[in-house]
Amino acid sequence: MARRMGRTLFRADFVLTKPIALSASLSLKPREVAVLFGPSGSGKTTALRCLAGLIKPKSGSIEAFSTIWQDESGFFLPARHRQVSMVFQDYALFPHLKAWQNIALACSENEKVARDWLTRFSMSDLAEQYPKELSGGQKQRVALMRALARSPKLLLLDEPFSAVDSMTRKVLRQELIKLRDSLDCAVVLVTHDWEEARLLADKVYILSDGKILQTGTIQELENNPQSDQVSQIIGI
């Protein structure tokens, strides 16, 4: 089912020299799912951290949904002021807080909203559990709920399925596909699993050595890779 997408409202164009050399240019429509795809060390996570405001690029600009997050004059909006959420590779759940408290921290400590999210994900019976007491899949869901509870305009997912077993990965992927249709935000997903990109992406950015080699839909990339390197990276 085709999802309704607006016109381009997110533009990021930045250059980074530390911790790695990275040059990226991305554009997104609201509700669009973009995948950053590339081998390990290509700069995918670093690019994500630049979008989140966790790393300050050396230069560039980020314009997000009528708000300037960064510009060429040196203006840089810190992460806490951006309407952005991120699911970390290892989830980064606060170990001293229960599941509902982890979520509540992202929505001005509103317990009701946090518990509503848990109910929506059929996890209300785990509300009082600490992260240590949750399985990998449950932690991933709590991390996703925490990210969504902030009502972000941009959701960043850093290899969200890499820390779970293959069975759980399949279930979580299906859940994310279902959830994607109801999300009211653009999504940037980092992965090095082409199958995952095929399932979720509206648009794919192929990254290697800190540079974007090619951008396009899955079909465009599979039918018309612009170089041998791109073919190699996507495995065709």
Binding site: A52, G53, L54, P78, A79, R80, H81, V84, S85, M86, F88, D90, A92, L93, F94, L105, A106, S108, R146, A147, R150
Partner: peptide, 14 residues
């Protein structure tokens, strides 16, 4: 871990 503090910042915490 530094990502916990980053997660805090992304939750909007000062």
């Amino acid at each position: 871990e530094s990502n916990l503090l980053e997660a805090g910042a992304l939750c909007g915490l000062s």
